[in-house]
Design a binder for these strands. Structure first.
Lengths: 102, 102
DNA sequence: CCGTAGGTTCGACTTGCATCGTACCTCTGT
DNA sequence: ACAGAGGTACGATGCAAGTCGAACCTACGG
């Protein structure tokens, strides 16, 4: 599957979709972990060691990707996820700060 | 039922609970309508004329109340809902601005 | 060339949430 | 005293979302 789709432009991002993505405890935790690391940090999905199966992990990352929270980067061997920090700050100012403050 | 419970203190408010409450289209619409009116505006649940039954409307207002978004005020005859604007701005700065900007 | 690691997809199951109807409560106005 | 308006509580139902296992794909390393 080519990277291709699943990465909305900032203008296409829907606040309710983003809020729904963040409302799940596992997904919220992933975003919160990204915010504790330097801007632009890349991590594999597996590195979070979520307490669910591999397919469920993939599902959650798909939800976050389609909401616009993450960008999946293909590195040949392993794909990595990156928080779309600057784009989210521009589209939804203050939102990530709220997550960070938690 | 006395007003009593169901009104968390700002410190007790949970961001994920609030995000979940806002993720629903009907509830999001209610909060958005409050934001288009003057601070402190009181409205009955029925005044929103949500396209659902009376019991479902009550359910949605309960979710918003327990999340801390609204305060129900008993006026003898009819109870009214008020957006907890200042408290939310203090606890989750920028959150209501995001809803307002939508 | 094959095994392994990291992800995705698919179908099935299960839990959660929105929804409804009904019954009930509390005030108000008549 | 009673009827109606506005809300709440409860049980049941239907659909969406989270979860899983199994199969598959791609790239890398031995």
């Amino acid at each position: 599957m080519p990277d291709g789709e699943g990465h909305p432009l900032p203008a296409e991002m829907d606040l309710r979709t983003v809020l729904h993505a963040l409302a799940d405890p596992l997904r919220f935790g992933v975003i919160a972990q990204f915010l504790r690391e330097p801007e632009g940090t890349e991590r594999t999905c597996a590195s979070f060691q979520l307490p669910v199966s591999k397919s469920t992990t993939s599902h959650h990352f798909k939800v976050m990707r389609e909401a616009g929270l993450l960008r999946m980067v293909d590195h040949g061997n392993s794909r990595t996820a990156v928080l779309r920090g600057k784009e989210l700050d521009a589209r939804f100012p203050g939102l990530l700060d709220l997550v960070r403050a938690e």
